[in-house]
Design a protein around this nucleic acid. Sequence first.
DNA 1: GTGTCTGCAAATCTTTTGCAACAAT
DNA 2: ATTGTTGCAAAAGATTTGCAGACAC
Lengths: 151, 151
Amino acid sequence: MTAKRDKFKALLKEKGLKVTTQRVMVLEVLSQCPDRHLTAEEIYELVKADYPEIGLATVYRTIQLLLELNLVDRINLDDGYVRYEIGQADNSEVKHHHHHLICLECGKVSSFEDDLLDELEKKIIDTASFQVTDHEVKLYGYCKECLSKKG
Amino acid sequence: MTAKRDKFKALLKEKGLKVTTQRVMVLEVLSQCPDRHLTAEEIYELVKADYPEIGLATVYRTIQLLLELNLVDRINLDDGYVRYEIGQADNSEVKHHHHHLICLECGKVSSFEDDLLDELEKKIIDTASFQVTDHEVKLYGYCKECLSKKG
DNA sequence: GTGTCTGCAAATCTTTTGCAACAAT
DNA sequence: ATTGTTGCAAAAGATTTGCAGACAC
């Protein structure tokens, strides 16, 4: 994911911010785990494996930065941790993200895409006079693996 | 909302729990604010107006109880507070809740109902082999009032 | 060299918990 | 009388912030 790293560096310079090892490593870890939904603590542990000097506060500050730059999305599963994942699309015009299937048995989170939500948004605009700019959908249930285990 | 209060009392007795003034008052406050999405602190302040002796811990414990009894729904707007609202339906078989329109300008939260999500759930079951039991949808945007203010 | 960033520890903020007194049944 | 419940204060756990030293530019 060199493209994402270069983009990050460019965005930092553009804003007069500094390109530090810590910032690049946090992005790197998130890029390398596109499917896991990492907590700040998990990101901290992963970066620490290669760069033991990093502090947890720096991870939090970098995540904040990445959220503001729209390079990372926030997910809240209401389990006491906020989670983060690298933005899927390459362009920064990611309008619709946050579609998640959450298994109530094993806790696994998977993502999905669907156009049906666009339809729902149109409907809302018509009936509720509410202009929708983004949406977040969470579907709770049981994943294939847990279903087959239960038989 | 005497019906809800009586139901609550019945459920408590059924479980061998005690009907206390504090518990009833927390439910009462939530029943009287069906449209506001109250934080624990707000519920605490509202109950305290009529019953100053109540403690915040009791509010938290009662909310926990109401969640378990399915009388109350939890909403997380990612603003650092968890919010609670009284369940809409009268029967306890509320399968689908949590549909919210959140105004990014004024922060107002309104609710809506829609069948479209059922369709989405069916689709997910077919394509992702994921058995959906519940869903939560948040649509972010701008409400009628804020739109007209902005012109 | 200048101004930003980092790591640490302390602070903050919401929510939970232990415990002795208290109230419901 | 018995057992669950309350209020308080302390604890917990995630996230933030202040600050002096370190680093990018």
